[in-house]
């Protein structure tokens, strides 16, 4: 089956990203495909490229990146939710006159319409939220 995940929990303040990552790895091991992880609400914080946890803690940013490397899953981040929380890619930083950006590939800013399209296209959309 073709899956998408909707992640609406922030890293380190909810278990949602951890559960989503475990679910993703398991579904891939069972031969399903994972098209996209869509980050919405506080889940957009998962995309911060400045995430720097202590070395003895799981680095969620690295875990998302390695999931992408393993299966090519798209990491879609809702642009409106991201911008209001201070998560900008290079293009949005330039557009809004900000000197820094903290979202970079494989994470991509995209519209909420992408979530609706995933729901149309994928066999299953599973939510992990807080």
């Amino acid at each position: 089956m073709n899956y998408a995940l909707l992640v609406m929990g922030a890293p380190y303040s909810s278990q949602a990203p951890h559960s989503a990552l475990r679910f993703a790895r398991t579904l891939l091991a069972q031969g399903h495909t994972l098209e996209s992880v869509f980050f919405y609400r506080d889940g957009v914080h998962n995309a911060s490229s400045l995430m720097t946890p202590p070395q003895d803690e799981a680095n969620l940013l690295e875990l998302w990146r390695s999931l992408h490397q393993a299966c090519g899953v798209k990491l879609d981040v809702c642009i409106a939710a991201a911008l209001r929380r201070g998560l900008l890619d290079k293009a949005e930083a330039a557009r809004h006159g900000q000197s820094h950006h903290n979202v970079s590939p494989p994470f991509e800013l995209t519209g909420l319409g992408q979530l609706l399209e995933l729901q149309q296209r994928c066999d299953r959309v599973i939510t992990f939220a807080a």
């Binding site: 089956m1 899956y3 609406m8 929990g9 949602a16 475990r22 679910f23 398991t26 579904l27 069972q30 399903h32 299953r124 599973i126 939510t127 992990f128 939220a129 807080a130």
Partner: peptide, 19 residues
Amino acid sequence: GMETFVALTAQTRQTISWY
């Protein structure tokens, strides 16, 4: 286990998360 969680999402028509 997580394997059953995934299997349940495949077997059922729909999954709803309550949080």
